[in-house]
Design a protein around this nucleic acid. Structure first.
Lengths: 220, 220, 220, 220
DNA sequence: AATGAATGAGCGTTCATTCAT
DNA sequence: TATGAATGAACGCTCATTCAT
């Protein structure tokens, strides 16, 4: 499993120790997510977030010292979800066929689609958005590389380009949310098939190159 | 696809009548593009744009009566470039091989890459961003359909899904700007090859279906 | 006749909940009234009002979400004063002689003279100034009609024109503030005498018409 | 005839010597009057006035160096009309009955009603609005005093209060434009009758006091 | 700790006025 | 002289953030 390096987009001013505080933070994050989706980051005011989550503005600022921090927390949440889901696939990668992996990845795309489109624009408002974006991408690519390698941490020289291709195929799948709803699911299936095909091919290449290289756990 | 800014908002928006004015407008647009890329639409102030282009704020507002209009003008420029470049390919489509078309399209992607990433986010701040996005997409898809059909305006029932696939392949190529610069050009070539392959297949299908009337599902 | 400011415009307009807030609102209204008299509505800036009342501009906008709302609050205050004073006369109307009523009305004119001249021009800047002006006029005319009828709510068909005449006599009295101060009080007395005379005559007509049913044109 | 002291509210920057210039100035004043009535002084922009009168903004400023000067010119025009009309009555005053004078004055009110309501608010935007208002009032009162005195320039000690009363009666007549249109003309007649009555009484008083004073031309 | 009144820098925009052509 | 492009001070208003209660 890849290094669990966290990507803190923001620090919560006070981590609530009691249950009440945790509920409050959740309510705030839910309200913020809804509002950001509905109106966009800049159109939403902190006062609005406070009102929607039935929180006093002062309390809101106790938990999230700036508006940017609030956006950052949302990003952290998304990043955690994505990482967790990806890691779940990573741990099972050795036991899955290419088709099953493709299905799992496309399923993940589908399940995080809404959260992603809601939260990803918030990257742009972060202090060091470029680095954050990089970190997000790297985190995904690392895990995808392991998945492509069927759970082996050993990287061949083909790992990186392969994981990039997979990443782009997933992006394509993500982009399908903008497609004509009538065609969406069939297009999704087509992408999934393409992904399965690619993983199969990558697996075959890997098997060939490993016969004379380092030993690799090879599940079929 | 709108090519001229529509209705003046509050103050009359004039189009420059003398050379001086035209230079000024150019300077403003250049400054705005730079700043929008650097900081994002909302973080940029009109005062900043005016200063960067050595324009009095009042003069800025003479040409662009709102901040949104300024963004709109940038979008119009991009839209015009894209349309023009695409049309150039359209007119030559009948005489080009699949590989040449793929090369032309990928070249277009490369040439408009920076402008696109600078300008496309501005869609979201436009009054009717949804319709505008739609219009932009439709404009591209229409032209891609003609290109896929090798310049023939006649559309088969396969035209639409095919043009969508091509569109997504181009989006993939566009997305490569975020890739590791070291690999970028090789990745680009790979996408180009994929595109060529797809166009070839689409062309073959088209030829077959034209010979025997209704299109036949023709796999492999 | 509106007595509470209606709908908050953009920012929420709060009514002050603590004593401090109430003091602040008073200070703002006093400052605004002074400035509006001195310079006229349009020449006064919100920043000026804030400075004169030692209020931060943001706090000013907390209580009065637009400049128009500030003017409206002043108008509401005047309207409330006027209504209250008029109603006080209405309740005593049955027990007063024509001369006493005239004295009361002229006294009212004198006491509200300054407030009126300060505040009445603000009608013109209100959203629906026509309707507001109408409402103000109607409110006065209604009460004057009752006063003319000596407290009886029953209106004869002469009530309306009579109350209009009384209204205009009061306007005349109001206009005396522009007269040479040396003559002002004697002119005031003359108007008061005229008013008393008119009320007496109206009362007589009324008495006559009530005795014999339908009103009779009764010229002496 | 009273002293012809002019009340210059504004100075025209350049008095146009040629016919063309005079036409231009007229067009500007007409446009300004229309716009000021339609939207109020502050809502009208100089650019708008220029456009409506088909004048270049630069030329507009050649004739009227400030916006205030433009308003002042309109006021001067009204003041001239009023003075002229009043003087016409003054010259005929000796030959008219009280009823005829009343009719003439009420007619004047009616004829200048619209111009007056359009132009009078512009007093408030003048640099020294208080003095201007005073001057306007004095000009009228002077002439009314002469009219009340039936054309004699000799003033009795009653002239001033009498002319003030007449002035206020005219103001009342002016105010009738806001009255219910259905009643307007009958109310107007009533005011006219009242005015005639008052003039008659004033004439009688005057005649009595003059029997032992300076000789006065006494008509009717 | 919790509250929400208070703060003020800074925004997009306007328009009377100037001045180069 | 006539034109209209250029100017910039100043406006009404917002809202992230602070701090007294």
């Amino acid at each position: 499993m890849p290094s669990q390096k966290s990507i803190p987009a923001a620090t919560v001013a006070v981590s609530p120790k009691r249950q009440r505080g945790r509920d409050r933070v959740d309510a705030i994050l839910r309200a913020a997510a809804t509002l950001f989706v509905e109106q966009g980051y800049h159109a939403v005011t902190m006062t609005e977030v406070a009102a929607r989550s039935s929180t006093a503005i002062g309390s809101l600022y106790r938990f999230f010292p700036t508006k940017e921090a609030l956006a950052g927390a949302l990003l952290d949440g998304y990043s955690a979800h994505l990482t967790e889901a990806l890691d779940a696939i990573v741990t099972r990668a050795a036991t899955l066929s290419s088709g099953e992996i493709a299905a799992a990845l496309i399923g993940l795309v589908r399940s995080l689609r809404h959260e992603r489109s809601a939260v990803l624009p918030l990257v742009d408002v972060q202090k060091d958005s470029v680095a954050l974006r990089q970190a997000l991408r790297d985190g995904m690519r690392d895990r995808l590389a392991t998945i492509v390698a069927r759970g082996s941490l050993a990287r061949s020289e083909r790992s990186e380009p392969q994981s990039i291709v997979v990443l782009h195929l997933l992006k394509m799948a993500w982009a399908l949310q903008h497609a004509d709803p009538a065609m969406q699911s069939s297009l999704e299936q087509e992408v999934q098939a393409l992904l399965a095909l690619y993983l199969e091919k990558a697996g075959a290449e890997r098997a060939a190159s490993c016969r004379s290289g380092p030993p690799v756990k090879q599940v079929r």
